[in-house]
Amino acid sequence: MAVAIITGAGSGIGRAVAVELAGRGWDIVLAGRRAEGLEETARLAGRGLPVPTDVSDAASVAALFAAAKAEFGRIDLLFNNAGTNTPALPFETLASEALAEVIAVNLTGPLFCAREAVAAMKAQAPQGGRIINNGSVSAYGPRPHSVAYTASKHGITGLTKSLILDCRDFGISVCQVDIGNAATARTDRMSQGVPQANGTTAIEPRMDVAMLARHIVGLAELPAEVMVPFSTIMPTTMPLYGRG
Rank of each mutant, 00 (worst) to 15 (best):
M1E: 04
T7Q: 02
G14C: 05
A16G: 09
L21V: 05
G23T: 14
G23C: 03
R43Y: 07
L44T: 13
A45I: 11
T53I: 00
V61N: 07
A67L: 03
A68T: 01
F72V: 02
I75V: 15
L77V: 14
T84G: 12
P87Y: 04
P90H: 09
E92N: 12
L94C: 06
A95R: 15
N106Q: 03
K122I: 07
Q124K: 14
P126I: 05
G135H: 06
S136C: 12
V137G: 02
S138H: 10
R143N: 08
V147H: 08
A148R: 06
K153F: 13
I156P: 00
R168D: 09
V174C: 07
C175H: 06
D178T: 03
A185I: 11
A185N: 15
T187H: 08
R189Y: 14
M190K: 12
G193N: 10
V194E: 03
A197F: 10
A202F: 06
M207P: 07
D208K: 01
A210G: 01
A210N: 11
L212F: 07
L219W: 00
P223I: 04
M227D: 11
P229N: 00
T232F: 02
P235W: 10
T236W: 10
T236H: 10
G242D: 03
G242L: 02
G244H: 10
